[in-house]
Design a binder for these strands. Structure first.
Lengths: 126, 126
DNA sequence: ATACAACTTAAACCATGGTTTAAGTCAACA
DNA sequence: TGTTGACTTAAACCATGGTTTAAGTTGTAT
């Protein structure tokens, strides 16, 4: 199996090494191996897990939630139903958040149009 | 003109009164009037401004950015171009963020499908 | 008139998600 | 051999976005 260093993992996902160490300390990246000098060695499995962590982070799951998910991964196949349910709930939350963002963007656009109109008409206000 | 109390504003937008006071303190809600007892009175204009603040917050603009925007609103029509440009940039940032969220959701889905397959096939792994 | 709910303030406190610092270890190259 | 650069650690520090606390004022209902 191919291993990679923390600097390679950092470059691969464009996140600081400090953040990777922080995630490990928080329990989001368990079971990372070390070389003779104590340096982290990321297996392909660990890289896949880190990618999952990043996907969950990108969709605004709190680190505590990500940790719960990772704990279930470590626990094994008995937790697959729990994980699927968690992901289902999370996906709904993300879609709701994106809806809110879309609605809020619309609200902002409405004001922008007012500005643009005012610019041409010389009105005053917010 | 119709005025409303902090509790009415709080109810209208479903945000805590403490948060509204915090926003005022941070300069996001300037020029709020007071009654004889020193209580906040929100004019329709203020309510519209609060709605803008909330739209910007919902789309993850930092409070410091929202304050800049509000400062420009207060400054008057000479800042309309600046505001339009800011909103244009912000909108691009929000669309990029939503893209990343959508991509990350896909990444999560791929893993979920693997789980579902494994559940049926009895494989092992993340 | 008195009790209650709703309001006021400034300041301390809190959670989240990192980042920075200080001190040290190690491998490889000149 | 020594110095350079990448790595290690624990712990302190930081920014953001509020929330809570403590102490006090006000308006309305009984």
């Amino acid at each position: 199996m191919k291993y990679c260093s923390i600097s390679e993992a950092s470059a691969k996902f464009d996140i600081p090494e400090t953040t990777i160490r922080y995630y490990e300390k928080k329990g989001l990246l368990p079971l990372i191996e070390r070389d003779a000098a104590g340096r982290r060695l990321f297996s392909e499995n660990q890289i896949a897990l880190l990618e999952t962590v990043i996907c969950l982070k990108n969709t605004h799951m709190p680190l505590s939630g990500i940790k719960q998910y990772i704990d279930w991964v470590i626990e094994g196949d008995s937790t697959i139903e729990l994980r699927l349910q968690m992901m289902k709930n999370h996906k709904q939350a993300v879609l709701a958040e994106m809806s809110l963002m879309t609605e809020s963007l619309k609200g902002i656009d409405v004001k922008n149009e007012r500005y643009t109109n005012r610019k041409n008409k010389g009105e005053v206000g917010q």
